[in-house]
């Protein structure tokens, strides 16, 4: 079994490589070790859940992988690029081109419609109107909201907002999507719908997803579960 898994990893291209990442908050006053030498590799097309109790370091690890926070030590290599070596503006540009984010609180731009929210990152990328329209149509259809294009976030339910957030995360055709507790504010049905959508996109379009979650419903759908505790990886299971 172990040999089979090893060969699978060799065949799969690594999208994210985390090497010995340590994060210490307040190093000069009262140091808090959020991550302690985490090693992790995420291959293309994986559907991985990062689990663990509150304070285990899930969100910190996602933030460091997403270039939102700096590691105190170690490195994060995304598609052969060590993101710590990028300047601030290069990091922002790198995120825009390569990483999709889904947040716990949806975080859509309240003054834009669902359609405009989805095309926003593409606009930042400089995509043409026709490309944007086609991609928005495709994604909104994929998340089942084709008839909600002109609604603002305040006119959508929490589940619908999170589906728009998933569509936004995918609009730029990122290498992978980081989702921080994406179902934390959703009811059972919305959670199930969202997971269906993400699983479908993962399966059909080979999109890589990395979640942080407490939610057993998400963990049950993941194909790999990485367990963190006290800033360290304590288990890493691939579910067949």
């Amino acid at each position: 079994m172990a040999r089979f898994q090893a060969s699978k990893y060799i065949l799969m291209k690594n999208v994210i490589t985390v090497k010995g990442v340590t994060k210490i908050y307040n190093p000069d006053t009262i140091p808090v070790h959020a991550l302690r030498g985490v090693d992790l590799q995420i291959g293309e097309g994986e559907f991985t859940a990062l689990v663990g109790p509150s304070g285990s370091g899930k969100t910190t690890l996602l933030n460091i992988i997403g270039g939102l926070d700096d590691a105190s030590d170690g490195s994060v290599i995304i598609n052969e690029q060590d993101i710590a070596k990028l300047s601030d503006s290069q990091t922002i540009e790198f995120r825009k081109q390569n990483i999709g984010f889904v947040f716990q609180a949806y975080n859509l731009i309240p003054v834009l419609t669902a359609k405009e929210n989805v095309e926003f990152v593409m606009l930042l990328q400089g995509a043409s109107q026709s490309d944007r329209d086609a991609r928005v149509k495709e994604l909104m259809s994929a998340v089942g909201l084709s008839d909600h294009l002109d609604r603002r976030p305040s006119q959508l339910s929490g589940g619908q907002q999170q589906r728009v957030a998933v569509a936004r995360a995918l609009a730029s055709k990122p290498m992978f999507v980081l989702a921080d507790e994406p179902t934390a504010n959703l009811d059972s049905k919305s959670t199930a719908d969202l997971l269906d959508i993400m699983a479908k996109l993962n399966k059909e379009e080979n999109i890589t997803f990395l979640f942080s979650t407490h939610d057993q419903r998400v963990i049950d759908r993941a194909r790999r579960v990485v367990n963190l505790d006290d800033g360290a990886v304590i288990s890493d299971k691939t579910i067949e």
Binding site: L68, S89, I92, E93, K96, F120, V121, Q125
Partner: peptide, 16 residues
């Protein structure tokens, strides 16, 4: 502040 953080994280440049 939170909203600005989100916009920066999804790739909006600081200048924009």
């Amino acid at each position: 502040k939170f909203e600005f953080g989100v916009l920066l994280s999804i790739g909006m440049s600081r200048v924009k």
